[in-house]
Design a protein around this nucleic acid. Structure first.
Length: 841
RNA sequence: GCCGGAGUGGCGGAAUUGGUAGACGCAAGGGACUUAAAAUCCCUCGGUCAUCUUGGCUGUGCCGGUUCGAGUCCGGCCUUCGGCACCA
């Protein structure tokens, strides 16, 4: 009864049956421990690509494995459905973003179903529906109440191509995260989320993310960018004003020889009245390579030395960080050094490398920074071509203070602490903590997003939309032309409204929210996706959260993952969840590569999953994706590799069909112990138990599915070469059934079909994950490696479990070893239990 | 520049705590079956030398070290991929 493996038919049948029997529908009321497995939800761009396939198959394998392990597993899917491409499609093809989006969703949903992914579709969430985005608006209002939302005019990142604002996190290499076009700065008034309020906690709790890749945690820490220092006030000569600066290197305060302030600093316009100077300051270039400055003509007084030092407007000082002004210490800061060289400003050394202190020549350097020689040796010396004391670059390391009054001879570390205290005591400064993290600008001048629930009233000012008037519905009758301002701004029917406070004529906010707001809490919504009087049913959220395993691309290392952490903490403070962090474990899967670069439409190297599913079935595709590389690494696409996965499944298929009679004869679920078996059968049974162990450990340890599948291949190879020598049908049956069981998370339809054909009635989904028997898995004999001086010299088969003396004896009695050690003096013999003997001579 | 990964056959990749380097798969070569092809099955497969079987040497980016023993640990480089980048 030769029967061909007809993947397409089998897969269709099982998908129908799973859906009919609602096998993936899950409830909170279970005695089983919960497991929440989540893959980053897709943007409905049109079709599923190979990157999606990889991401979702990883999640599905974990889900199916955990389910068999006895967990109540939540595995939901949804759509990150607001965003630019829908608007672009609307402009290009005249189709409404809504229509385009929902058509894509229904097509992609069918694709996902064809892949046999075990989602609970009852929990599907679509962010562009009022039932969802209503709660974006609700959270916005709650955050507004808590002072976590504010409006301000500032210089913002503007993508000229997308015609919208971008958050700092959305600017990659000075380009737009979506379209790659160069981002420009634009002065604009917009809404901000005060993520900086949570900077400290986001940083502190990063330490608890032990299930995340260290790389991602580091990226988040760096992005938050905490630094401790002091703010110091410098008196401005001939003025009642002060110049406040921020520094982390207060130990270099005695070496400050000038001041630098940002060209946009308010003091510039307050102090400088001279037209020519002002013009020159405004003309300073933005090129980060070339340091430029203009002398303002004003002087500041160093609070510790009393020195009067010039104030320069400089192009390298950022208005957005610290106070927008810095003290310049050219001897110990490379930028200041270059600036000082350019404008012939004094360079005063106040820090020496620790090891050179006390060296007789130290005094030679008091008027300059370090020479080439001191940088490497710590002590100055004369070298051809370099006059002594000519500084080449700033010495930026910590060291020991010189020429710093009572702080001289202190280490930089001590001086930082003492000078900070000294400044505070004298009322000249205070300790502060600064962050690189900026508040999250969420206004977008786009149509296809969540309307911001705010109203502008001529008499009351900015008024929030009352909660009971939510949602502010995005109108469906917008006209998208692709030119001018946001469509909502041009729709009077939308923005003309009454003031919720005074009832007078008022105007709605016409900007929409950044779509990253939508994805910052969707994982919480899955827990109670249909609740309509609250965003989150607390009981359900308490049961499911946190997400136990999150899987997605590394590109969200700071963006989405940081925002989600922030939202979780805010929602906790609102009182709806109890957890501090949303994702216990994070798996960042690698890219899918073909011909040396990432699979993408623009590269023209895409392989269509649909095509492969039609040709081989989804199980082959799933096996290939899991086998070709461990999940966190890039996956090199190989058409022949897919062919190999197909052959692997067919070998199992054919074997079971050829031996059908034997395999259905006995229903064996547990078989252990080797007594009474033929040598061949014992070997196969042992291998089977070893394979259960290996596959389980590969998954448990780090989701290295490639080695799990490799172990299954080894077992099937052994089964295929098995020579029966008696009635071995029980062992054979046990063995092949376990191949099917162990492969079921990877190739679920294939496993279901064979499971049924081997006489099992219940779905393999109900079968628990098999356990191995330690005793049976133990090798009877081991291959003892015999080394002489660490070099492999012989291999001897010996019974397992021998003691050191017996092992030594076996090693020494090998003929080849005897020959080589004859007449030589032994130094020592090292025995590694049940592995090797090393004879040292 | 700073921070963090990664370098293993022709290729994708294996190798729990230092203990047989190259599992498993792909490609390649040879053979069987076939009128032929596909499919399938069997054999070979890091390099090199040899008395081409059961052997010797060599080999995990490079140089050095620790150790009886290093892909794995330490020091110094090289290459490469990410992230941040005037952050004071």
């Amino acid at each position: 009864m030769e029967e061909k493996y007809n993947a397409l038919e089998i897969e269709k049948n099982w998908q129908d049956r799973w859906s009919r029997e609602e096998l993936f529908t899950i409830k909170e009321n279970s005695d089983l421990p919960k497991f929440y497995c989540l893959e980053m939800f897709p943007y409905p761009s049109g079709r599923i690509h190979m990157g999606h396939v990889r991401n979702y198959v990883i999640g599905d394998v974990i889900t199916r494995y955990k389910r068999m392990q006895g967990f109540n597993v939540m595995h939901p899917m949804g759509w990150d459905a607001f965003g630019m491409p829908a608007e672009n499609a609307a402009i290009k093809h005249g189709v409404h973003p809504s229509k385009w989006t929902f058509e894509n969703i229904s097509y992609m949903k069918e694709q996902l179903k064809r892949m046999g992914l075990s989602y609970d579709w009852n929990r599907e969430v679509t962010t562009c529906t009022p039932e969802y985005y209503k709660w974006n608006q609700w959270f916005f209002l709650k955050m507004y109440e808590r002072g976590l939302v504010y409006r301000k005019a500032s210089s913002v990142n503007w993508c000229p191509s997308c015609e919208t604002v971008l958050a700092n996190e959305q600017v990659i290499d000075e380009g737009c995260w979506r379209c790659d076009n160069k981002v420009v700065q634009k002065e604009l008034e917009q809404w901000f989320f005060k993520i900086t309020e949570y900077a400290e906690e986001l940083l502190k709790d990063a330490d608890t993310l032990s299930g995340w890749p260290e790389k991602v945690v580091t990226m988040q820490r760096n992005w938050i960018g905490r630094s401790e220092g002091v703010e110091v006030d410098f008196k401005i000569i001939d003025s009642d004003k002060k110049l406040r600066i921020f520094t982390t290197r207060q130990d270099t305060l005695y070496g400050a020889t000038f001041m630098s302030i940002a060209k946009g600093h308010p003091l510039v316009s307050e102090l400088v009245k001279d037209e020519k100077t002002l013009k020159a300051i405004n003309a300073l270039s933005d090129d980060p390579e070339e340091k430029e400055g203009v002398n303002t003509g004003f002087y500041a007084e160093n609070p510790l030395t009393g020195d009067q030092i010039p104030i320069y407007a400089a192009n390298f000082v950022l208005m957005e960080y610290g106070t927008g002004a810095v003290m310049a210490v050219p001897a110990h800061d490379q930028r200041d050094f270059e600036f000082a060289k350019k404008y012939a400003l004094p360079i005063k050394t106040v820090i020496m490398p620790a090891k050179s202190v006390g060296a007789p020549l130290a005094g030679a350097l008091t008027t300059g920074a370090l020479t080439a020689d001191t940088l490497t040796t710590g002590a100055p010396a004369q070298e051809e071509g370099h006059p002594q004391g000519e500084p080449l670059q700033a010495f930026e390391d910590y060291g020991v203070l010189v020429d710093s009054s009572q702080f001289s001879n202190l280490s930089s570390e001590e001086a930082r602490a003492k000078i900070a205290v000294h400044l505070e005591n004298k009322g000249m400064g205070k300790k502060v903590v600064n962050y690189k993290l900026r508040d999250w600008g969420i206004s977008r001048q786009r149509y296809w997003g969540t309307p911001i629930p705010m109203v502008y009233c001529p008499s009351c000012g900015i008024v929030p939309v009352p909660e009971d008037e939510l949602p502010v519905v995005l109108p469906q009758d917008a006209v998208l032309t692709g030119t001018g301002t946001s469509p909502l701004a041009e729709m009077e029917s939308f923005h003309k409204t009454r003031c919720p406070a005074c009832g007078g004529d008022a105007k709605r906010e016409t900007d929409t929210m950044d779509t990253f707001v939508d994805s910052s809490w969707y994982f919480l919504r899955y827990c109670s996706p249909r609740s309509d009087d609250t965003p989150l049913d607390t009981e359900a959220v308490d049961y499911w959260m946190p997400v136990d395993q999150y899987i997605g691309g590394i590109e969200h290392a700071v963006l989405h993952l940081l925002y989600s952490r922030f939202f979780t903490k805010v929602i906790r403070d609102i009182g709806l969840v109890k957890i501090d962090e949303p994702f216990v474990s994070l798996l960042t899967q690698g890219m899918v590569i073909k011909d040396g670069s990432k699979m993408s439409k623009s590269k023209g190297n895409v392989v269509d999953p649909d095509f492969l599913i039609k040709k081989y079935g989804t199980d082959t595709l799933r096996i290939f994706c899991m086998f070709a590389a461990p999940p966190e690494r890039d996956l090199e696409w190989s058409d022949q590799g897919v062919e190999g996965a197909w052959r692997f499944l067919n070998r199992i298929w054919t074997f079971i069909h050829k031996n059908h009679a034997v395999l259905t004869k006995k229903s064996i679920n547990e078989l252990k112990g080797l007594t009474g078996l033929t040598t061949e059968a014992a070997k196969l049974l042992r291998k089977t138990h070893q394979t259960i162990e290996k596959v389980t450990n590969s998954i448990e340890r780090d989701y290295h599915f490639n080695t799990a599948i490799a172990a299954l291949m080894e077992l099937i190879n052994e089964i295929l070469s098995f020579k029966s020598s008696g009635d071995d049908s029980a062992v054979l049956s046990f063995s092949i059934k376990h191949v099917v069981l162990l492969i079921s998370p990877f190739a679920p339809h294939f496993a279901e079909e064979l499971w049924k054909e081997m006489g099992e009635e219940k779905s393999i989904l109900h079968k628990e994950w098999p356990a191995w028997d330690e005793e049976t898995a133990k090798d009877e004999e081991i291959e003892l490696v015999v080394q002489i001086n660490g070099k492999l010299r012989a291999k001897v088969m010996v019974p397992a479990g021998l003691d050191d003396e017996a092992i030594k004896e076996k090693a020494f009695s090998d003929l080849k070893i005897k020959e080589q050690i004859e007449g030589k003096q032994l130094k020592k013999v090292i025995v590694v239990k049940s592995k090797l003997v090393n004879i040292v001579m």
